[in-house]
Design a protein around this nucleic acid. Sequence first.
DNA 1: ACACCGATGTCAACGCTGTTGACATCGGCG
DNA 2: CGCCGATGTCAACAGCGTTGACATCGGTGT
Lengths: 237, 237
Amino acid sequence: MTTTASSGRRRASGGTSAGRPRLDRDTIIAAGLELAAAPGSTSISVRELGARLGTDPTAIYRHFRSKEHLMEALLDELIGRSVAAVTADPADWRERLRQLAASTLDLFSGHPAVGVEAIVLTTHGPGELDAVELMLDAFSHAGLRGDDLVRHYALFASHVLSSAAGIARGRGERGGSPGEPSAWFEGPLLADPRTHPIIASVATSLTDLQDRDLFLLGVEAVIQSAERAAGAAASAS
Amino acid sequence: MTTTASSGRRRASGGTSAGRPRLDRDTIIAAGLELAAAPGSTSISVRELGARLGTDPTAIYRHFRSKEHLMEALLDELIGRSVAAVTADPADWRERLRQLAASTLDLFSGHPAVGVEAIVLTTHGPGELDAVELMLDAFSHAGLRGDDLVRHYALFASHVLSSAAGIARGRGERGGSPGEPSAWFEGPLLADPRTHPIIASVATSLTDLQDRDLFLLGVEAVIQSAERAAGAAASAS
DNA sequence: ACACCGATGTCAACGCTGTTGACATCGGCG
DNA sequence: CGCCGATGTCAACAGCGTTGACATCGGTGT
């Protein structure tokens, strides 16, 4: 029962004056995302959010059972926006998956404090449902059915969510702006060539590796796997 | 200067009597892992650890700069054990990767509070270095070189660490013992067949999907990708 | 129009967390 | 023996999520 009842829009923004607009689920979510968009913040606190809203922090608990539910709602909103950013034709399933992955990564990186929460994997919200349907639809267009379909969706979702969450975390800690490139491997790796020869030999290309490139590489890997599975299933029928 | 100097074993366990054995880096790590192995604990606190050791909690700060460094050490120990569990012949690179992945998943699941930390991706410790060398060696045996080698290692490591961390988190929250199977997708998904037809059609096989199976599937996907890349590189030379 | 009553905002407080600084003690070395 | 750094102890701080009691607001039934 967390949703604001059935249908009613709750008088919307209260018209003209409205001295202190009543606190609202959507208002809290909007403020939460703004707060999470602040660079360098790995997490947001209920007290911060209350200050931002100009109300007592505990007022938030009238609209969300716990902070965990709040974070789920924020994450679901982000996922919903990711889905909305997908514009390619449904038939072009590859491009749709690429768009979904890219926008998810961008939104997570832009809101690190929320993106980190994606490791929980499920938001129990409408955004997640739409995203799942989109991914299943894409792999369905690829020609996958049954277990192959479910497995590839799961692999894709798992990679996108957890990798994007990891990247978001790194972005939050380093405080870098969402756009600029950042290395996948943290800090310099000091390996003795005698005990770790291969590390030493590829050290430079390893530290050059960008997290975003690796993320997209994983996306392509799942897409290619889907192509092959679809081809195999087609030739077997 | 957190490390206990260079090499010395520090008189070991103090001989025979030793009323209260002096606190030691290794002792703390051992106690930390025991604590993390307790079922249903998503995180461990410094005070808990102090109680376990029979010392004042803050004594830990004489051996670790911060809790973050402590957790890094615990994680590195776990990774080191994962590497030690790999017994297959170096030539059988596929099996070695499978063994490493499986033991990592098992150890993370068995110590959820530590496994969750794997999203930080780097421990700056010796265990991590050995693991990286092992993975690079394996993909090297597969025939990969240069960027292909680094990319496949990164993809593999990223998947194993973040997926295992996610699974460990789920195990910790649900308090289930490490062995028993657990579903990848949390909770029942209630989808209206009219708005989300594909979800509805595959709902059962989706909730049947086990997290461990999906994890291993990802491992196989990277292995197969490595095989194909190696084949392509060989035919191009 | 008035009284009601649930929904909402406010405040103080609880128990928990990681961390710090001052102080006491232990143990090896000159 | 006496020093002195390393280590253990204690009290305390600031922050966190969360709860319960209380005040107030606003729509509803009469």
